[in-house]
Amino acid sequence: MLAYFVAMATYAGFFMILAQGLNLQWGMTGMVNFGVAGFYALGAYSGAILSTRIGIAPELAIALAGVAAGVAGLVVSLLTMRLREDYFAIVTLGFGEIVRLFALNEDWLTEGPRGLRIPARPFDFGLSNAVYSLVYLGVVALVVLVIYAICERIRSGPYGRTLRAIREDDVVAGVLGKNVLRFRVQAFVLGSVFMGVAGALFAHYIQNISPDTFMPMIAIFIWMSVIVGGYGNNKGLLLGAGIVIFILEGSRFLGDFTSIVTSQQLSSIRIILIGIILMAVLRFRPRGLIPEPKFMSEFEKTS
């Protein structure tokens, strides 16, 4: 049972990192990234390939995976920064699908649908499995906290205010003399780095990844985390990610229940539940359960 809690908390950690990355991009600057799964997959595969095929130390591979996702974020954002937000959403979604297709088809590199095995264990000092899983959770938690600190600093500083000004109205922010494009690219790249790190941490944790793991559904889970938590709010989205993981994984506690429905039906029920909660939150509490601290007031009257 404890092992199960530890696993759940670790998963929640991956989602929290992803959600923080998305919050930086969308919650704070309004860039609608639907390609979360793509950046996550890119981080997972590049980290895994670096540590298994090239033999780099897994800790370094995880960091480099962040860099790889950041570079992809740079390219994607530079290409699409001028787009209207709904088109931006579609193109980033496309990026996610293309990464998945690449992983599926280029099996000389990724083992395709068979899945890529990752024997390398980072942060391993010859520990027993039970202790190792606790250590891994600790590492993930540390990363979550570091990223949280970075995001909080960004949010409360002048940089964060500019980012939110861009989100509310990029014309106004442009007039204010801020270099909108540069800020948006920076926020997007940093968010992508976080997602890449989350992917590589995930890959080395689960030790076996396949393209199926990175369906666009992931994007919805992460969006749900940010939205339910109250977008723009770093604390809220940690809670949001926890809720999503609880719905996705916590239903396993209903062990006996699975004799009535098959596991496949159960997974459908979970997704239906997530979808309905997401729609209900957006309809009835569009600012999330923990709304972002008031910043809007000076912009509210413009519309």
């Binding site: 609608v32 959403a89 979808g275 309905i276």
Partner: peptide, 30 residues
């Protein structure tokens, strides 16, 4: 869903519609 939310931003509605797709597809799968 959409008519009561017509004053929401297009992006909010976009997210809702993606969630709706998954709800519909998984209801069918169920």
């Amino acid at each position: 869903i959409f008519r009561p939310m017509r004053t929401s931003s297009p992006v909010t509605l976009l997210v809702v519609s993606i969630a709706l797709t998954f709800v519909l597809e998984h209801t069918v799968r169920l």
